[in-house]
Every structure is written in structure tokens, then in C-alpha cells.
């Protein structure tokens, strides 16, 4: 079974965000880049699925500036993926164009039986690319998946929806699965894994070569940092007084009751 993981590299969750000079993007100086947290679940599930289905292979595809994304792909290789492909692209490529690049690259590589991704990239917060890739490849998808069973013909996936409910779907392969937290426990890259990953040659593709249409569908007007909150009001007195005061403030000052 040929398995593809769509992986994004994003600023580390601890990163302090500073605005860039253009006022439309962030200042990328000094940012530590990591594998998007949800994509770690995707990589883990791909590697586990490969091991359970002898003869399978895991290919990792990453869209973004190749001078930095190579690190993220090597992390996935160190976790056990077999091959890495960098699709060179500018910063802040929109989800529709990213999905096109991934779909075209998957087609160029001869297709895939199972395509894993994370349910959300924590930088652009779009939660769109997996569904778009599925549509462009005319194959089914499911997102926010926290449980998966794979056979050579189909997958059965549990998807988390509102109120703790779960939708259980069976998808004929090929299919796209977008992972939620809870799907598995991503492994750490082992030292031998890291050594091996370092030696692997990453394949390189680019948007022009793939024939991606890069017409801009959306336009960012500005990027802003959240407004400063007024300083916290600390409530004093014994616990009874604090509780009474809080209820009064919520009712009369904040007016949220």
C-alpha cells in the first residue's frame, strides 16, 4: 500500500509572534520551525499502518520554502517514513494553492492508497487542505479522526464532532484522513532514525513544474496583534468575600450573567 503524508512546517507553539515590515505577514526572523502538531499524528499513523501492511511505503510531502521545510521532512523520516518530497513554494501559500500542489504531486508520483494529514495547521488555522486534496483527487475524505482501522480496500474512521459525539464512517480506498489528537501517541525520532534520515536524499518539486495555478483567490489586507487586555483585577478578602465580589462584578460590571 502506498501511503502519503501531507506535512506542514509551522512556527513552534511557544514562538512569540512579531509582525513583519509589510504589515501582512509575520517576521520570520528567529522563529523555531517545527512539524505541525497534528501532522505528527498523521506521520505516526502512516508508519504504523505501513508496518501492519507489509510491502507498504510512506512518502512525506511538504509544501513550503524548501530551505527550511527540509528539516520537518527529515523529522518525519526519522520517525520512520521512507521517502521525502519537498515542494518548493513561497511563504504563506494559501490553502487552495497548497492543496493543488499536493494533489498534483501525488498524481505525478503515481497516486496513493492512503493519504494522511493533520486536521488543522496551527499557523493559518485553515483546516481546509485535506478536504481540498481529496476533492481534487476525486476520492473520499474524513477529518478530525481519532480512531482508525485499515484494510487493503477500505478504512473505518471515527471522527470527533460536537458534544463528544462521534461519526463512524467507512471509506473505500484511496482516501484522505485528517488526524486529530487522540489518534495515537506519536513516537520520538530515535537516534539511529535521525542518523539514517540525515543521509536520505530528498526529492524536490516546485509549483511551476507541477503546473499549479497560482492565481490569488484571497488577499490579506493586514495582520494585527491582539489588543492589549486591561490589567487583571485581583479580588481580595476571604474566600466568601471573593466569591460574592466576583458574582457582583460579573453581573454589574462585565454584564455577562
Amino acid at each position: 500500500m502506498k501511503i502519503v503524508v501531507c506535512l506542514k512546517q509551522v512556527p513552534d507553539t511557544e514562538t512569540k509572534i512579531k509582525l513583519g515590515a509589510d504589515g501582512q505577514s509575520i517576521d520570520t526572523n528567529g522563529i523555531k520551525w517545527v512539524v505541525n502538531p497534528y501532522d505528527e499524528y498523521a506521520v505516526e499513523e502512516a508508519v504504523k499502518t505501513r508496518d501492519a501492511h507489509p510491502g507498504s511505503q510512506v512518502h512525506v510531502l511538504c509544501v513550503g520554502p524548501k530551505k527550511r521545510t527540509a528539516d520537518a521532512v527529515r523529522t518525519a523520516l526519522a520517525m520512520g517514513a521512507d521517502e521525502g518530497i519537498l515542494i518548493d513554494a513561497p511563504e504563506n501559500l494559501d490553502p487552495a494553492t497548497t492543496a493543488q500542489a499536493l494533489a498534483k504531486a501525488i498524481q505525478a508520483e503515481g497516486g496513493a492508497q492512503l493519504i494522511f494529514a493533520g486536521k488543522l495547521a496551527i499557523d493559518d488555522n485553515a483546516s481546509s487542505v485535506p478536504q481540498m486534496v481529496a476533492e481534487l483527487l476525486s476520492i473520499p475524505h474524513t477529518t478530525v479522526v481519532s480512531k482508525l482501522a485499515v484494510t487493503p480496500e477500505s478504512v473505518t474512521a471515527e471522527r470527533d464532532v460536537e458534544g463528544g459525539a462521534k461519526e463512524v464512517a467507512q471509506l473505500a480506498l484511496p482516501a484522505v484522513i485528517a488526524a486529530n489528537k487522540g489518534l495515537n501517541m506519536p513516537r520520538y525520532a530515535s537516534l539511529p532514525g535521525i542518523m539514517k534520515a540525515k543521509k536520505k536524499v530528498l526529492k524536490e518539486l516546485d509549483l511551476a513544474g507541477l503546473g499549479v495555478n497560482t492565481v490569488a483567490l484571497t488577499k490579506t489586507l493586514s495582520l494585527e496583534l491582539p489588543a492589549d487586555k486591561p490589567p487583571v483585577k485581583m479580588l481580595t478578602g476571604d474566600s466568601g468575600a471573593q466569591a460574592a465580589q466576583l458574582v457582583q462584578l460579573l453581573r454589574d460590571e462585565a454584564k455577562v450573567l
Binding site: 512556527p11 509572534i17 509575520i26 490579506t220 489586507l221 495582520l223 494585527e224 496583534l225
Partner: peptide
């Protein structure tokens, strides 16, 4: 960026 910025 996880609510650390807002895009218009």
C-alpha cells in the same frame, strides 16, 4: 498563529 495574531 493560535490567536497570537489576527488577519484581516
Amino acid at each position: 498563529y493560535s490567536g497570537k495574531a489576527f488577519a484581516k
